[in-house]
Amino acid sequence: MANTFFRFKQFNVDQAHCAMKVCTDACIQGAFTAQYLVNNQLTVPAILDIGAGTGLLSLMLAQQVDACITAVELDPGAAEQATKNFAASPWAHRLVLTHQDIRKMEVAIPYDFIITNPPFYESALKSGHAQKDQAMHATTLGYGELITAIDRHLHPAGTFSILLPFVQFETFRVLAEAAGFHLQEVLYIRQSVKHGYFRATGIFGREALETHETELAIYDEHNVYTSPFVALLQSYYLYL
């Protein structure tokens, strides 16, 4: 599911100028994550966005949180577009795009928070289109490697946000727990009230807390956006 325009205060990101589609799933993750940081009044001066794509998640967090955000993207086309989107935003002074492989990125400082929307499918069939496969499958960064990268770059007291398909999320959760990360908050996402869960976005940290679980349906039984969806996204969508 893709949307054309988003409202970042006075800054609109136009999908027509993006190298990759901006999807509803990622918008939900960005809004849910920003809400988590704001509601818990967390101080996160330095944020890392792993696999930034065209920069959507970094821009969403920058709108709500006063933090310096470093976005890492391997694909050159997406990295170029993210750089342009950052430069055109009101938060350009707090956004930095680095075009490199997170596995090779040196640990300069520990980040207080990490957000990532990684490739979705580790073992699914590939399309045969290299760029699409890299975006949708873990062809360059497996879940284990991602957890290792997060562990290297995250402050000991830091937390991270991730978005995955519902089934793969449980696989990731098991791997994360084995590495010492515990699921603290999770939002299970339905396409509509008639559907089962198809995505999950969660907050993980090294402290073992009771997991706070919530759910969100995008559409109601009449194929209209639900009130909780509107409430979560209305600060970002130009038309909602």
Rank of each mutant, 00 (worst) to 15 (best):
I150P: 00
R94H: 13
T211F: 02
Q100T: 15
Q15V: 06
T214Q: 10
T33N: 08
E210S: 08
Y36V: 06
T4A: 12
V44C: 14
P156F: 01
H17N: 09
T148V: 06
A217Y: 15
D14S: 11
K9D: 15
D14C: 07
M60S: 05
E80Q: 03
G144H: 05
I115K: 14
G180L: 01
E185T: 07
H153K: 01
S161A: 11
A46S: 04
Y197M: 04
Y188S: 14
T226A: 13
L59K: 10
H153Q: 07
F6K: 13
I218N: 12
E215T: 04
L59Y: 12
T98P: 04
E170W: 05
H17K: 09
Q35M: 06
R94V: 01
H195R: 14
L216K: 05
F5V: 08
V38I: 14
Q234F: 13
G53I: 08
V38T: 12
D101H: 03
L97Y: 00
C27S: 14
T43N: 15
L125I: 14
V38M: 06
R206M: 07
S58G: 14
G196M: 09
N12R: 12
S161K: 00
Y36R: 04
A92M: 09
N39T: 09
H182F: 15
K21R: 13
E145F: 09
V224G: 14
V107G: 11
F181L: 00
L240S: 11
V107R: 15
P118T: 08
A149T: 01
L57V: 12
E73Y: 00
G77A: 04
F181C: 00
R206K: 11
L232R: 04
Q10I: 11
A208M: 06
T201Q: 01
E80V: 03
E215S: 02
S123E: 05
L56H: 02
M60E: 01
A208I: 08
L48Y: 04
A2L: 11
T214P: 00
L42C: 03
C27K: 08
L154G: 00
G180V: 01
L183I: 10
